[in-house]
Amino acid sequence: MTEAILATHNITKRFGAVTASDGVTMDLRPGEIHAVIGPNGAGKSTLIAQICGGLKPDAGQVEFLGQDVSTLTTRKRARMGLARTFQISALAMENTVLENAVLGALGARGGTLGLIRPVLRDKTLRDMALHALERAGLADHAKTRTSELSHGQRRQLEVAVALTLQPKAFVMDEPMAGMGSEGSARLTGFLDELRAEAPILLVEHDMDAVFALADRLSVLVYGKIIATGTVAEIRANPDVRIAYLGEDA
């Protein structure tokens, strides 16, 4: 087994009587897309928040690049190379598409932020941003105000901003959510290429996308992972059939 890039060891999170994560152990290996599926309320968002740093687990560890990052802030994990995309687009809507991508490049470069020189005149940042936009298929919209983008284009921009960080791993929270079938297919193709660059932890409802992309699948039900395996293994797993895919799947 190759060394995992990102792993959780037995993480548990409780909110009052509800156990949102119940001893979750999983890992993300180089070059793979590992999809997490589960019914609504299974604890997918809580799991992502703990991996990315928004929530601290009550017990267990999150490991990234061989280091225990459980107590690090979102910001520090991002600086280590953990790129996240949001389920509900979290973009600067009043800014242009290019500015959003430049923000990512700015974060990736680190150091102090200048106060005087216009950020868009910085050729290095601009090139990084444009390159990411081009790869995500948004090069023509660089000067568009983000609030004027379609829903699908915003999802593309989410991925483009993550790309500017030149990350070691992606965590994507339902990147296909609310996309039309065409847009969804295009993004599927793009994520397929992306896995060679950095592995992707993919939380997704779109089953076509999941089955087309995932090297491995984990099924989360009531905060517990009930099965992990290849698409074929998961399809054949009787517990998963009962809990999630339905008898006739």
């Binding site: 910001r75 991002a78 949001f86 973009l91 923000l103 990512g104 974060g107 990736a108 680190g110 932020l113």
Partner: peptide, 11 residues
């Protein structure tokens, strides 16, 4: 506009 965004790019 979006504090989470700024955090996730490491600022």
């Amino acid at each position: 506009q979006s504090p989470q965004r700024v955090e996730t790019v490491g600022l």
